[in-house]
């Protein structure tokens, strides 16, 4: 089912890429740039922006920079050359991307940033980001509760080169460190990947068989930890994460992953397009440049309300 969803997203993205062969719409094109289209989170971002831009009458150009600043720069040059009407981007880097955003803005092309912010104000039309600190705090609070405020635990960070991951880790510790009977016995960067998460957990489990809980910086790492613990027959260890992919939802429903915070990837992208559209219509700008979106806390009570990083209460 999830593979099918990913295929469908990829198909939507591929369809978007073929826009150049089609007649341009009157409203012009919005370029959508994300990290990697084979990652469920970024695919959801791209799909959300793509769907909304088309609904508003734009053509779209969906591109992946693979977190490569040089490649992103080329994509910006290409988009500027094609005279796109606006750019929505989950940028490759918070600092190095400033120049690319400035270049587009100087060319009269508004840029809406989603997920990853840049360090300078006043260049982008809007910077929409997840409240990673709140998401991390919510998950850590449940973790403390499930651990009954005591015992040995492990932190598997997602990727400490990514500021969002650093923020989540800080949020974890701001909560957990207030409980002196909770002892962190190991901390390892699992690079945000499932396999790294599993490998890290495999080795940590050997060194710390008395482990009671694992708090993870993102979903893939949490699923890697779950896989490791399952293969070791350890269903007594509490695992929590952050992200909110469909695979995490399945794990929560199965009772393996105890909680996560769903990042509103699609909603962020949709709102980014809306801000671009409003600006293109009459020059109106959002009240604030930086806007945060909450992470929605997910456990067994509401996991069935999530699909492709979209939460529906209906």
């Amino acid at each position: 089912m999830k593979k099918f969803t990913l295929l469908a997203l990829s198909a939507a993205v591929a369809a978007s890429l073929s826009f150049t062969a089609q007649a341009a719409s009157e409203k012009g094109t919005i370029a959508i740039m994300v990290n990697a289209l084979d990652n469920p989170y970024y695919a959801a971002e791209a799909a959300g922006a793509d769907r909304q831009a088309k609904a508003l009458g734009y053509d779209t150009l969906v591109l992946s920079h693979s977190e490569d600043v040089k490649k992103q720069n080329e994509l910006f040059d290409n988009a500027i050359g094609q005279k796109v009407k606006g750019i929505i981007v989950d940028c490759a880097d918070s600092t190095a991307s400033v120049a690319a955003v400035q270049k587009a803005t100087d060319a009269g092309i508004p840029v809406a940033l989603i997920n990853r912010e840049i360090v300078k104000d006043g260049i982008a039309l809007v910077q929409l980001t997840h409240n990673n600190f709140q998401a991390g705090s919510d998950v850590a609070n449940r973790f403390v509760e499930l651990m009954e405020e005591e015992g040995p635990y492990v932190e598997l960070t997602c990727n400490l080169a990514d500021n969002n991951c650093v923020t989540r880790s800080k949020a974890f510790h701001q909560v957990i460190d207030q409980f002196p009977d909770m002892k962190m016995v190991a901390r390892q960067d699992a690079k945000g990947a499932l396999l790294d998460g599993k490998n890290a957990m495999d080795s940590i489990l050997q060194a710390h068989p008395d482990l009671k809980g694992v708090i993870c910086g993102n979903g893939p790492v949490a699923l890697g930890a779950v896989a490791s613990l399952k293969s070791a027959g350890r269903d007594d260890v509490v695992v929590v994460g952050i992200d909110g992919s469909n695979d995490e939802m399945d794990s929560i429903k199965a009772g393996d992953l105890k909680a996560t915070a769903m990042l509103q990837a699609q909603e962020l992208a949709v709102q980014g397009v809306n801000y671009l559209d409003a600006y293109l219509k009459d020059g109106s700008k959002p009240e604030k440049e930086r806007i945060m979106f909450r992470g929605i806390f997910i456990d067994q009570t509401n996991a069935d309300k999530v699909n492709d990083f979209l939460y529906s209460d209906k």
């Binding site: 600190f133 650093v166 800080k170």
Partner: peptide, 23 residues
Amino acid sequence: TALRDIQKDISYTAFNDQTVYGE
């Protein structure tokens, strides 16, 4: 964070940094 967030004069915009706002 009810006590932080109920303040009308001091919002996230005054910080622009999630960690510092958390602190």
